[in-house]
Write a protein that binds this DNA or RNA. Structure first.
Lengths: 319, 319
DNA sequence: TCGATACTGGCAAAAAACTTCCATTTGTCA
DNA sequence: TGACAAATGGAAGTTTTTTGCCAGTATCGA
């Protein structure tokens, strides 16, 4: 923030005229937030990678931009402060503060966008559906906080952290989770193999698992997939199994070293997956942290999950 | 502004404990905006003239306080900056910035209360992780209600309902969603084909799509998968595209007949998927309802989404 | 493969903001 | 009315934030 108030902005006509950067992109300083948004959505295509990243972040988190500092915003967007300044200048602003003023002004009046559209359309079937799913997800998420067995969670994390190779199994609905978890693990450098059973090779692949590996199994009522069978056969050969399921009656439970139970709400016959996803992601991170600590026990901050923050800005993004 | 973000506020217990000034007035640092407001309204009477003036100004112009600087706020309130700082300290804050954070936090979530009441994760690292993911998911779900463009949603639903065969594409993180949506469609009897690109056959398969079909594409920043290419090639041959993405900069947008934008929060570098899932499921159901109505327009209850409830008790369950 | 251009990251100087301190004024009680 | 205490204004000092600059790296075209 360079000026007291955002109202009396100095005349920048001269700056725009000779600002090589601004001229290069051909943008003249958008006065209002709406103008900026319009410019952003139109001309972003041919922006360099990082600047593009900035544009997207600005688009997605206007409030954070208005309230934060260059440093904080840059951090959130995964770029350097200087990049933010360059970005602002490329669009004809004198600097970040100048651009920020636009966001502040926007936040000062109206601020929130389509709040009212929802009210008036709340009668529509579409709104009812979306609302229903949001609600059931939210409820599930709320419930899991109270019910989650942290001791089991730790045990699972420990087992997986000690594993040489992590096999991940789950079918149907659980498969969405499996693919997500597998991707997350991979992005953190944790070796894993999601058994998708393409070509019906799951049994054969799992037969290669040894007691130094581990299996993460996911299955929900009515447990009628091959997942329990796979888990059982692996367990028989001494491979440690940990599982996520939705009741203590799951066939996974007897064969598991540790398991957690996550109960999901359902709306209109469709169970949410949010709570399970949240717990699963926490598990993934927990495993990764354990491994990082095992490598350099002293180096990591104990409480802040250093490894979780240090590696990269966004560890799981992109399509 | 002294700290990057206003959310994780450093523990000020020590400051409050020995803050002689704060103790003088007997106020202990109000954590939230609402608390502060309560204190303000109660204790204003016996405040010195200028401080009283400050209290009133804070009460009347919370937005200006959140967005401005000490100097600007002081100017507007007709007092010196130092007076503002003294005021803040009198109420137990460490300084103006600290007090301002309360206003910022209030402005950030549109006046919603809470978030602090979640009582910072009870000790263990595991709890902190789970809590973090739950929180980011919940926030995402809350945000989508405000931002979702229902008109686009309807358009998407309509396009998909009219399609002969629905192709579903998405990679990496989006693939979890794709597999889930595909399964849900299938369980409802809606013909669909999820292009998982096993064997790199996605392009070939999609080449068979005709204008009477439709493509549901899902892609997130930084849009670096083959999804946009697939969508573009299909669009070129006249196949209608609808998409779910996370910003208007997505390469999917220009090729789509309709699209919805869902912005997810992230925790520790991992974006939630909850909001997108919720919207996707709503879309699935919406499509199915349209089809059911098209088959027997009169038979179905119009508002209750009969088809959504009649078919089976649990449509998407089991592993 | 090489060269040129453009983009990015990090640092250090500059600017701005926040806070503290102290002299002065105002208010209150004896 | 005088003395004391409290409150205020202003300026100096300190911290944070912002910006300009330069070197390293990636990208594009030849």
């Amino acid at each position: 923030m360079r000026r007291g108030r955002s109202v009396e902005r100095n005349n920048r006509a001269d700056v725009v005229a000779d600002a090589s950067v601004g001229a290069a992109l051909g943008y003249s300083r958008p006065g209002s937030y709406e103008e900026l948004r319009a410019v952003l959505s139109s001309g972003t295509a041919r922006l360099p990678k990082k600047l593009r990243q900035v544009a997207i972040h600005l688009w997605q988190h206007p409030t954070a931009v208005a309230l934060g500092t260059v440093t904080s915003v840059a951090g959130e967007a995964g770029v350097q402060p200087s990049t933010l300044v360059r970005f602002a200048q490329a669009f004809g602003y004198s600097g970040f503060s100048d651009l920020q003023d636009a966001f502040k002004a926007h936040l000062a009046d109206g601020g929130r966008e389509g709040r009212d559209q929802w009210e008036e359309a709340s009668g529509s079937e579409a709104a009812r559906l979306v609302d229903g799913f949001i609600r059931s997800s939210t409820t599930s998420l709320g419930g899991v906080r109270d019910r989650l067995d942290l001791a089991q969670f730790e045990a699972m994390s420990q087992t997986l952290a000690a594993a040489d190779l992590i096999y991940i199994i789950g079918s149907k609905r659980a498969f969405s989770l499996v693919s997500y978890v597998s991707l997350a693990f991979a992005n953190l450098g944790v070796r894993n193999l999601a058994l998708d059973n393409v070509g019906s090779t799951a049994f054969e692949l799992l037969r290669c698992a040894s007691p130094s590996d581990a299996v993460l199994a996911v299955s929900f009522t009515p447990y009628n997939s091959i997942t329990p069978e796979l888990a059982a056969s692996a367990a028989q050969r001494g491979v440690p199994i940990v599982s996520m399921t939705d009741s203590a009656f799951s066939p996974l439970v007897p064969v598991s070293k540790a398991y957690i139970e996550v109960i999901e709400e359902s709306f209109s016959g469709f169970k949410s997956l949010s709570a399970t996803l949240a717990v699963a992601m926490a598990l993934v991170l927990s495993v990764e942290q354990r491994r990082a600590e095992a490598v350099s026990p002293t180096q990591n901050l104990p409480s802040r999950g250093a490894s979780g923050l240090v590696r990269a800005h966004e560890k799981l993004e992109g399509d």
